[in-house]
């Protein structure tokens, strides 16, 4: 799967896609879902929860593994993707599209500059040997 170039990435395998009006979608990468295998549960913060860049925001579980999800940006949770909460397999099927996790009101757009581009992220994943 090609890594979309319309968004930024973290070293911990999250992505963030800027929308209109200071909002952004956040999710986990194709590589992350592939490493986890069948995703069975997502523990995500409620709307209104403040987020801080690089801090743990929730957890993603597969049948036999648990991973922390770190916030790619600072801000506040505006919306949780109800579809992935009810059907976590959507994250496996479409991690960059329907499988988004949170809509965030971001507080500092400059933070995005510190994140990776698609090319840089691909390079990182290649270097990790997968």
């Amino acid at each position: 799967m090609t890594t979309p170039s319309d968004r930024r990435y973290t070293r911990e395998h999250e992505w963030v896609l800027l929308e209109n009006g200071g909002r952004a979608l956040a999710g986990i990468t194709h590589h992350a879902q592939d490493q986890l295998g069948d995703i069975v549960y997502l523990d995500l913060p409620k709307p209104g929860t403040p987020l801080k860049q690089s801090q743990k925001l929730g957890e993603v579980e597969s049948v036999k593994a648990v991973s922390d999800i770190y916030s790619p940006v600072s801000g506040e949770v505006v919306e949780v993707n109800a579809e992935v909460v009810a059907h976590p397999e959507v994250v496996n099927q479409d991690p960059y599209g329907r499988g988004w996790l949170l809509r965030v009101a971001i507080s500092d757009r400059a933070e995005l500059e510190g994140l990776l581009s698609a090319d840089e992220y691909d390079h990182l994943v290649a270097k990790q040997g997968h």
Binding site: V40, Y41, E61, S62, V63, K64, A65, V66
Partner: peptide, 12 residues
Amino acid sequence: LQTREQHIRRER
């Protein structure tokens, strides 16, 4: 729901 258990989540 084994991710709750000691052999996966360990100290958590």
